[in-house]
Amino acid sequence: MFGIHQKLERNAIGFVIAIIVVSSIGGFMEIAPLFTIHETVEEAPDMRLYTPLEVAGRNIYIREGCYACHSQMIRTLRDDVERYGPYSLAVESKYDHPMLWGSKRTGPDLARVGGKYSDAWHVAHLINPRDVVPESIMPGYRWLAETPLKVDDLSLHLAAQRKVGVPYTDEMIANAAADAYGQAMPDSPFAAGVTARYGDATNVRAFDGQPDRLTEMDALVAYLQVLGRLTDAPYQQTASTEGAKP
């Protein structure tokens, strides 16, 4: 084997051909699954889109590096499922650009954190994690509750998402800023438009406890509260699997 490798290294043309062959095999193995993507991604007719406020929250999540300590992918291992809930499906990340699966769990996985805790718990946790989880080593993000959310560019964010396949409509893009206000201010005239465009399952409330203002805390909590709740497919998959057991 080593003799063949030495001879190959001394033959420039042969070495180049070998590199091309090996690279082609590796490239094929990466590209081939894309041709069956429609077979590997589950159907989820009830899959809904992130609202502008949730998109803003996701951007803050990325900006603050939350993905470095929290994964968003529950593996099919028994321990993962028993601790966090139904294992993650490919369709749940259908509209995630970029993906936030993560590979490190300094903190717990967040794929099913939506609805697990109250808004007040999340606010307290983000301001000072030790107030609700004494052993936490997570830093506090107190400024989020004091920083007004920037909304004037949200329509551009939605338009960019549409370019990579997320089916936002022209109406959704045009009303992005108003919908961000409406989702966090349930008594405002903008609130009705949010549910009309994104569905009755959309969370519409003052996430940071301050209904008279829109903050980055509103956005981040809105995003956290929707994780694992964009579709019921994982729960239906679990139910069908359990029902098939003898």
Rank of each mutant, 00 (worst) to 15 (best):
V113W: 01
E42A: 03
K150T: 12
A56D: 09
S88K: 00
P139K: 06
K150L: 10
E43I: 06
L220W: 00
R197E: 14
Y223Q: 04
V221N: 00
Q237E: 07
Q161W: 03
A56C: 14
D170Q: 10
A120D: 07
R229F: 04
E39L: 06
V81Y: 13
E43P: 00
Q183M: 10
G165S: 05
N175Q: 14
I4F: 12
A68F: 09
V113N: 03
Q225I: 05
F28P: 00
T195C: 13
A160P: 07
V204Y: 02
E82M: 14
Q6K: 14
P86K: 15
H125L: 03
E92N: 09
S23D: 04
V166F: 14
L53S: 01
P134T: 05
T241G: 12
M1P: 04
E64L: 12
I19N: 14
S71I: 00
A120Q: 15
H97I: 07
P98V: 14
L100S: 06
F28G: 07
A124Q: 10
L154C: 09
Y181S: 01
I31F: 05
A145N: 11
G193H: 01
L89D: 02
P246V: 08
V221M: 04
L154A: 08
E39C: 02
D131E: 14
P246A: 08
D187R: 10
A206Q: 07
G57P: 00
N175D: 12
H97N: 14
A124H: 02
A184V: 08
E216D: 15
A174W: 09
E82K: 07
G243D: 10
F2G: 11
Q236L: 10
H122V: 02
Y61W: 13
R78A: 07
D152C: 06
R112E: 02
L214H: 01
G140K: 03
G85Y: 05
E92S: 09
E9G: 12
A120N: 06
Y223L: 04
I60L: 12
H97G: 08
K7V: 15
E9D: 12
H5T: 15
P139D: 10
Y168W: 09
S88W: 00
A176I: 03
S24P: 00
N11T: 07
R142H: 14
M217S: 01
L77N: 11
I173G: 01
E54Y: 02
W101T: 03
R197I: 14
D109Y: 01
V113M: 07
E39N: 12
A90D: 15
A90E: 13
D170T: 02
L214F: 05
I31W: 09
L149H: 00
F207H: 02
M47A: 06
L77E: 13
E92T: 08
H157Q: 13
M29E: 09
A174K: 14
S118C: 15
I25D: 02
F207L: 05
I4E: 04
N11E: 11
D170K: 07
T169A: 05
P189Q: 15
